[in-house]
Amino acid sequence: MSFLRGRLGRSKVDSSKQAVGGNSPVKKRNLSIGKVPDQAVRIGTVFILAIGAAVALRQHFIPESFGELGHYRANAIPVIAGAKLHYAGWQKCGECHEDQLNKKMGGFHKALSCETCHGPAYDHAVVDPTDTEATPKIPRNREFCLTCHSYLPSRPTGFPQIIELQHNPMEPCVKCHNPHDPAAQAEAPACSGCHGEIARTKAISHHSLLRCETCHATPPEHKENPRQNLPKKPTNREFCGQCHAEGTPTSGTLLGVDLSTREIPKVDLATHGNTYLCWQCHYPHDPEGK
């Protein structure tokens, strides 16, 4: 820090020297142009040179394909488009594994890609089928199937789900289900063939024991010409009241259901729910209840 202090004294000496000697008559080069004085010309030249050099260098360093298609390097696109593939696509698998593919195409897993379960197979299917390291895996453990099929309330209603602890615990799924054709164990294939989502919703609901026909009288022609021969739907509160109105039987069997196995919620039809029809508040295929 001493120079801060020292500076003052030293320059005093310097300046006094200069004062004695006066301005030495050294020849000065004056670069002034017209009214622009010398120093402005000097600094101006430096700036113009610096800016000129910067602009020239800039032109030189801009990548060659920059700006061809927009404000970016067009050459980046083929690099990105040339990245290595890992998933081959199910069509590729079918070229060799036609049987499995055909079987899968006829079953509930028809929309599933082979590589969803077997993993990325490009190296096996395209690069080198004999490379054993690239051979796709066959998942046989229960956990893998449960990734999709364990019950979660967030899953869409109708998607086949099991409660893990109730559905043959510890058994591998493949013991009963062929993953390429996992037949659903639905109770009325005739209806669930087309209305699978509703059937599966109902299957895990309080109404699981009711047959579809109990509520929907269905003309046989519906199966041949469905839109022209629609099944019936209940039209009034009394229909649901057959089971759920106060005073209906609480023991024995009702519409094929053994009443000793479950308690049916009962309401007073005259007062419950105002003028609404039952299904305006309750979803009959998955009614909330006690």
Binding site: K28, R29, D38, R42
Partner: peptide, 15 residues
Amino acid sequence: ALGSTDISEEAIAFD
């Protein structure tokens, strides 16, 4: 100083 040496009054006024 970029070689400039002019410290005349006009030059300083310009500064």
